[in-house]
Amino acid sequence: MTTSARPLVLLDVDGVLNPFHRPSSRFDRHECVVDGCMYQVLLDERHGAELRALAEDTGAELVWATTWEENANTEIGPRLGLPRLPVIKVTAGAGVADGPLFKTGPVAEYVRGRPFVWFDDELTSADWEYLTGHPDVGEFLLVEVDPRSGLSGCDIDRARDWLAAPRA
């Protein structure tokens, strides 16, 4: 397991960058077409600048960890002013009741010992247990974002503090 590589910041879209309800007028409504289907998303363009600053200030690499997969690079990132980001291939599907999120296995395989922060709205103790017990997972911070309001300044500050802390 290597921890010499840059830390990662893993980004979900729905519930994190696209909250379930419009929490404030800062969020603009956008229409996205994915595989011929129209979706409406609520995005706050300031999130892009905040995430870029988080990555630059901490030396972290931003990565999509969302069922939007590559569509996040074409439909979400440009609206937030984010560059093209690496994508963790996750398989959309139902998780096991009381088990880890369906994305947790692919995340564990992707990180390969690199420290990471994961912003998601569906994380539970089962995800923490799975990641803690996985041999290729090093240090991590799970940030459970409130899907009603989406990513907050407090969530970003928590990630910044954790990424800035010395690593073992």
Rank of each mutant, 00 (worst) to 15 (best):
V145C: 06
P7A: 08
D161K: 10
W162A: 01
G48R: 03
D57K: 03
I76A: 13
A55S: 14
H47D: 15
L51T: 07
D12I: 03
V33Y: 04
I156K: 07
P100A: 13
R148W: 12
V34Y: 04
E56K: 11
F140Y: 07
I88M: 12
G153L: 00
T132N: 15
L43F: 06
L51C: 10
A97P: 14
G105T: 12
F20E: 11
K89V: 15
L51P: 06
A97W: 01
G77L: 09
G133N: 15
V13P: 09
P100G: 06
Y39E: 11
H30C: 07
D146A: 11
A126S: 14
L8G: 00
H21A: 15
Q40I: 15
L80A: 12
V90E: 09
D28E: 13
G113R: 05
L82Y: 08
G105C: 04
A53M: 07
P147H: 10
P7D: 01
T132F: 08
G113N: 03
T58C: 08
F116Q: 03
F140L: 00
E139H: 12
S25H: 10
T58M: 02
L163T: 09
V33G: 08
P106S: 08
L54Y: 05
S149R: 11
V111W: 05
A49L: 09
W68P: 08
G133F: 08
T66M: 04
L142T: 12
L142S: 12
P19N: 07
L151R: 08
L42P: 01
E70F: 05
V63S: 03
L123H: 04
P7K: 00
V117D: 01
D57R: 13
A108V: 06
G105P: 11
L101C: 09
T66Q: 02
K103N: 03
M38G: 10
R160T: 03
H47A: 08
W162Q: 12
H21E: 14
L43S: 09
D98A: 15
A94H: 02
L131E: 06
S125D: 15
N73T: 05
A168H: 11
W118F: 10
V33M: 11
H30A: 12
K89M: 05
E50K: 01
H47Y: 08
A92R: 07
I88Q: 01
L85T: 14
S152G: 11
N18K: 10
F119P: 02
D146H: 06
E69K: 11
Q40Y: 11
W162F: 08
D161N: 10
E69P: 05
R26H: 14
L80K: 01
L123T: 15
G105V: 10
G153F: 00
D98R: 04
A65L: 14
L142R: 02
G95I: 02
M1E: 08
R22K: 15
V41S: 07
D161L: 00
I76Q: 09
V33E: 15
V87Q: 05
